[in-house]
């Protein structure tokens, strides 16, 4: 897909909660050997997807000095909404002081709800229906105690302010491509606390097939190849998947390195690829092309191509993702269980 009028990213912000828990604590508790990553973030007791979205959006607004009176849409992509019924975006509209003449909705598409929100805002801005909009991907992902997902299900998010290119963008959207199919690798039924997954399903038919299809589709339709890109960011449910999909598509370790935040942060679900894009924008230079490819179970993938502009230098997020990670402090399993509301009282 190509926008009718040129659009791009005006500002970006990310947020990761303060606490992390090491995989070795979890694996020693369950007497297992598997440690898919080093550590994962978890939310404080007073944090949820709404507060994480707020922090990411606030950082995007403050770092880019965006004219918030021009914002006409705010969409939050998440699979861990605090309410089953009651929109998250309305809290953000009043907490951030956005205009009340605004579109707002919560999106759900497992881990790709954040890029879905971006695609929608790109379309609304490109058509001229709104001047600017905010797209957020954020989660406080749930992992059943003892399940494989407990090692990686993390908390965090990122927010993107989107505008027309002539308003001044730090990265221009060149093209995007989306691919979906009915592939039941992971789900959570209504009223359930934790998701279920078919472990054998999550790799080839789900993650790899959908990301390969969206990226190859994009490359074939618009004539790109891996060497065109300074950086690439893939959805990162663990360390193995994004590094393997990058290699299969012909990308080098160097191209994915800045955006690979999963080893310390974990899988932030709807926030995952967007957090990787934020970490990549933290180091990107004008003229760099960046490939972003999300993945959401169920399943689907959005691939997008951005070209970074000179405005990146004055609009980078303060502080960068790397500093947000280095400020994190370790938590034990009991604190994790208490803050994640896993203890009966």
């Amino acid at each position: 897909m190509k926008p009718g009028n040129d659009v791009g990213i005006y500002g970006y912000g990310a947020y990761i909660p303060r606490y992390f828990i090491e995989n070795k604590i979890i694996s020693s508790l369950w007497k297992r050997d598997a440690q898919p990553i080093q550590s994962k973030s978890f939310p404080n007791y007073d944090e949820d997807t709404i507060t994480i979205s707020y922090e990411a959006a606030l950082r995007a607004i403050e770092s880019s000095k965006a004219p918030i009176e021009k914002i006409g849409a705010i969409f939050i992509g998440s699979e861990s909404k605090p309410y089953a019924v009651k929109p998250s975006g309305t809290v953000l509209v009043d907490a951030l002081g956005l205009p009340r003449s605004i579109l707002s909705a919560d999106y759900e598409f497992a881990c790709k709800a954040g890029t879905e929100a971006m695609q929608t805002v790109f379309g609304l801005v490109s058509s001229g229906m709104i001047e600017m909009g905010i797209a957020i991907g954020a989660d406080t992902a749930q992992g059943r105690p003892g399940d494989e997902l407990e090692y990686t299900a993390a908390a965090g998010g990122a927010a993107y302010i989107i505008s027309r290119v002539d308003m001044g963008v730090l990265a221009r959207l060149e093209a995007s491509y989306s691919y979906v199919s009915d592939t039941p690798d992971f789900w959570r039924r209504s009223g359930e606390d934790y998701p279920r997954h078919l472990y054998r399903f999550t790799g080839e038919p789900a993650y790899f097939h959908h990301i390969m299809s969206s990226v190859k589709g994009l490359f074939e339709k618009y004539g790109y190849q891996p060497s065109d890109f300074a950086y690439a960011v893939f959805h990162q449910p663990n360390y193995k998947f994004p590094t393997r999909v990058a290699a299969k598509l012909g990308f080098t370790r160097e191209q994915i390195k800045p955006g690979l935040v999963v080893p310390l942060v974990g899988n932030t679900y709807s926030g995952s690829s967007l957090l990787g894009l934020a970490a990549t924008l933290d180091v990107a230079k004008p003229g760099d092309k960046i490939l972003l490819a999300s993945f959401g179970s169920g399943a689907g993938s959005d691939a997008m191509v951005f070209e970074v502009t000179e405005l990146i230098e004055e609009r980078r997020m303060v502080p960068p993702v790397s500093k947000m990670i280095s400020r994190m402090s370790p938590g034990d399993y009991s604190t994790y269980a208490l803050y994640r509301d896993m203890l009966k009282r």
């Binding site: 949820d48 809290v91 400020r327």
Partner: peptide, 26 residues
């Protein structure tokens, strides 16, 4: 100042948000 959960009205009630202070991120 950042937005955090202040309290909830039990397990089924509303979640109330408001300002809390935390160390600056930088």
């Amino acid at each position: 100042a950042v937005l955090r959960k202040l309290y909830t009205y039990g397990e089924h009630g509303k979640i109330i948000y408001g300002v809390k202070f935390r160390p600056v991120l930088g």
